[in-house]
Design a binder for these strands. Structure first.
Length: 777
DNA sequence: CAGTGAGCGAGCTTCCGCTTGACTT
């Protein structure tokens, strides 16, 4: 003890993953504890040469990445001054590995190190944890190493193969490639889908009330007709039929609340109810977490702490009354869930709303409602179905209605679904008895079409991935960004089209028919594959069926579980996987052609040469002629929105009409083309982007000049002010409004200041302050 | 930054999962 006496001696150093968590725990623990965070993993496989010594039994080569050097140094210094180090990282595979990496990298001593875990951040949970320490679980760490090594081998052997066989800089991996496959397969289903039209029959009936006002009732026929003739024939038969109540069935119904949020369900509901992208949801949730308003937002657990359940109960009792309360805990059924944390819930359940920006308030409110509702009574309903008989016809009409007897949790929150509701069942039905006659008002046969499969949104893709056990709460959002960044998939809106559907109406004695215009196929923010996504997917499916199988992750997870309990040796598990995998990579490298998705569309009428499309080094291109010794083919990039799959010969030939000269201006040519950044007009070697509404094939000289003048006016407008004494300092108008630029750095103008009235002194002051603020951070 | 696409060769790209800054005019 004497060799190192420091005034800053720390009795206990506790290390957790997240700084926000560290702050909370420090509050619970006394002065004898210093709590720090590791900011996640502090070591990873080296990037060079796989980071794995395959020959040496897959020995991992771990390094501290540059952005972690600082925190590691800081932790090392703290460790030196500490009597006891408590590794309090999460109780799952990754958390155990983080603890082990800390132990190794910080050079901890076994006698001075304890490993503790807790699933919830409450005083009790933490105190209990401190009382029952253990040591690092090597088997669990090995399971993580196996997971890490497998992912590296897959990713770093498949990606370079794609660079050779498809296009540079592409990527493949256990998770992302399967996510892309889901989207490619959905698109295939949609292409194979053939809509079928049918007629749906609904009738409106009334009670021939004596005295009181007649009540109306809408009912649907149990049978659907596949043709206009059948539907009309049915209406003919109804013309003189009598209708009566055949049966009345009343059933009690219960609805239960959904469990509290996990990362995946939060992303889904925020997408459906608030229109947030998964990235947006995560960054808003991160802010709520950091400001202490919600619990941790990356979790697969639906568990609530006893404390939370108790305080939800108090809130519900006080606000809605005892009959609305039903405390319960949910259990997780998700594949591969590791449940290191609680569900996502408000830290303080008595706060129904919070301060913050609009997005934060809305997301918080959603989380609050979902959590509270999960602890509330079931809703009780009564569902009534009335069957209506038709004289002289076997078909029946049915009307159903739901009556809410007790709202329960519905008072607070109702989960939404991805499917569009066909038609909501009506509320209260009129009081009727069996055999009551009904007056037929009208019967309508409306033409409908079967729905094509629905494309994924970001959030519904996350749902699917979670179902398959692919990816983790911390990677859903990044994975979805990656597959869009690689341009495997795009998020798009579809305007939809109009179609005419027939409506046949029986009213009084007349049967009339009319055509009704109907919008269909409208989509917002749906994911669909690009050409590259499809080509890469087909290539991987052809050569690596096992990795592309939806069950691949589930089956390796089973083995990781066996490693985690010490029943399986991790290098031999990896060996068994790697042998056949690597030889497939080898085979594909040697034998397979470059996978270009090449397709011949036809012949160029001018030259008679073949016209084809394929994936080139820079993306999809069209080509006239073939590369031979004598000649070079002509190339043109496909436009945005065009695909190898759908492009026609005419559209491909059109591409070669660009660039074209459309006239002159100020004595120079006006040339229209399509470049990397879309359609442009070039004038005096300057480029001007065309508007979305301009078509490069038809645009005229006059409009091109207008675009040029517009741009010039905007540039003129860009300069607000300059100072003679300081020519490098300018006040400019930018995309986000006025700003100051000086020495390649930009500065915001404080609120309340008019940019054109700023003096040089004031500008210098603003810059000085901003720089000072920055360096202090 | 508004091309490119033949071929050579150097050097780069890439995984999943754990975390938050850095940027944010």
């Amino acid at each position: 003890m004497n060799e190192h006496v420091s005034e800053n001696m720390i009795e206990n150093l506790v290390i957790v993953e997240s700084p926000a968590k560290a702050k909370t725990i420090e509050r619970f623990l006394g002065k004898a504890y210093t709590v720090k965070s590791s900011f996640g993993h502090i070591r990873d496989l080296a990037k060079k040469n796989l980071g794995i010594d395959i020959e040496e039994g897959f020995t991992p080569r771990y390094v501290v990445p540059v952005d972690k050097k600082k925190i590691v140094k800081e932790l090392k210094e703290l460790v030196r001054d500490s009597s006891m180090v408590w590794l309090a990282t999460d109780e799952d595979r990754e958390g155990e590995a983080i603890a082990w990496h800390l132990f190794e990298e910080l050079g901890l001593e076994k006698e001075k190190t304890r490993r503790i875990v807790f699933h919830e951040i409450t005083r009790d949970a933490i105190v209990n944890a401190l009382e029952s320490p253990r040591f690092i679980d090597t088997n669990l760490v090995n399971a993580q190493q196996a997971r890490r090594v497998l992912d590296r081998l897959v990713g770093f052997e498949l990606s370079p193969l794609l660079w050779k066989k498809v296009k540079p800089s592409l990527s493949a991996g256990r998770v992302q490639s399967v996510a892309v496959k889901l989207i490619v397969e959905k698109e295939r289903e949609i292409q194979q889908f053939r809509p079928r039209n049918y007629f749906r029959v609904t009738g409106i009936f009334s009670t021939p009330g004596a005295g009181e006002a007649p009540a109306r009732l809408k009912a649907e026929l149990s049978k659907r007709f596949s043709s206009r003739e059948e539907a009309t024939a049915f209406l003919e038969r109804c013309r003189n039929s009598r209708f009566s109540v055949e049966n009345i069935e009343t059933k009690p119904l219960k609805k239960s609340p959904a469990p509290p949020f996990t990362t995946s369900t939060l992303q889904q509901e925020a997408s459906r109810k608030l229109g947030f992208s998964v990235n947006q949801t995560m960054s808003v949730a991160q802010r709520l977490y950091e400001s202490g308003k919600i619990t941790y937002m990356r979790t697969d657990s639906v568990n609530l702490s006893k404390l939370a359940i108790g305080s939800a109960a108090g809130k519900i009792r006080a606000t809605y009354g005892e009959e609305y309360l039903k405390s319960r805990n949910f259990s997780t059924r998700t594949k591969g869930a590791q449940e290191a944390h609680e569900a996502i819930r408000p830290t303080y359940l008595d706060h129904a709303t919070i301060e913050g920006n609009r997005a934060e308030q809305r997301l918080y409110e959603l989380i609050w409602k979902r959590t509270i509702a999960s602890q509330m009574s079931e809703a009780r309903l009564e569902k009534t179905t009335i069957t209506i008989a038709i004289s002289g016809a076997p078909e029946k009409f049915a009307a159903s209605g739901e009556v809410l007897l007790f709202d329960g949790f519905l008072k607070v929150y109702m989960e939404s679904t991805d499917e569009e509701q066909e038609e909501e069942s009506s509320g209260l039905l009129p009081p009727l008895k069996v055999n009551d006659p009904l007056q037929r008002e009208s019967i309508e046969a409306a033409e409908r079409s079967t729905q094509q499969p629905v494309r994924y949104t970001e959030a519904s893709l996350v749902k699917k991935m979670e179902e398959l056990g692919i990816g983790r709460p911390s990677t859903y959002a990044p994975t979805i960004s990656t597959i869009q960044q690689r341009e495997y998939v795009v998020k798009e809106d579809r305007k939809g089209s109009i179609r005419e559907m027939m409506q046949i109406l029986l009213k009084g004695e007349d049967i009339t028919s009319s055509m009704v215009r109907e919008k269909y196929g409208y989509e917002k923010g749906k994911l669909s594959p690009t050409d590259i996504g499809t080509v890469v997917n087909n290539f991987l499916e052809q050569h690596f069926q096992n990795i592309m199988d939806y069950n691949f992750t589930a089956s390796v997870e089973k083995e990781f579980d066996e490693i985690a309990v010490g029943k399986l040796n991790w290098p031999s598990m990896i060996e068994r996987f790697y042998q056949p995998f690597h030889s497939k990579v080898d085979t594909a490298t040697r034998t397979s052609e470059r996978s270009k998705g090449e397709k011949v569309l036809g012949k160029d009428p001018e030259s008679g040469k073949p016209v084809s499309v394929k994936i080139g080094r820079f993306g999809p291109i069209a080509q006239i002629g073939e590369a031979t010794d004598q000649e070079k083919p002509r190339f043109a990039s496909l436009l945005k929105g065009q695909s190898l799959e759908h492009i026609t010969l005419e559209e491909a030939l059109d591409l070669f009409r660009l660039p074209r000269t459309i006239g002159h201006f100020e004595g120079e040519e006006l040339v229209v083309g399509v470049g990397k950044y879309g359609p442009y007009v070039r004038h005096k070697s300057k480029f001007f982007s065309l508007a979305k509404s301009d078509d490069p094939y038809t645009i005229q000289e006059e409009r091109a000049i207008e675009i040029i003048m517009d741009k010039r006016a905007r540039e003129e407008n860009r300069n607000i002010k300059q100072f003679e004494e300081e020519p490098g300092l300018q006040i400019l108008n930018g995309r986000y409004g006025p700003y100051i630029t000086f020495q390649k750095k930009n500065y915001r103008i404080p609120r309340g200041k008019k940019p054109e009235e700023l003096t040089l002194e004031e500008c210098r002051e603003i810059i000085k302050k901003a720089d000072a603020k920055k360096s202090s951070k």
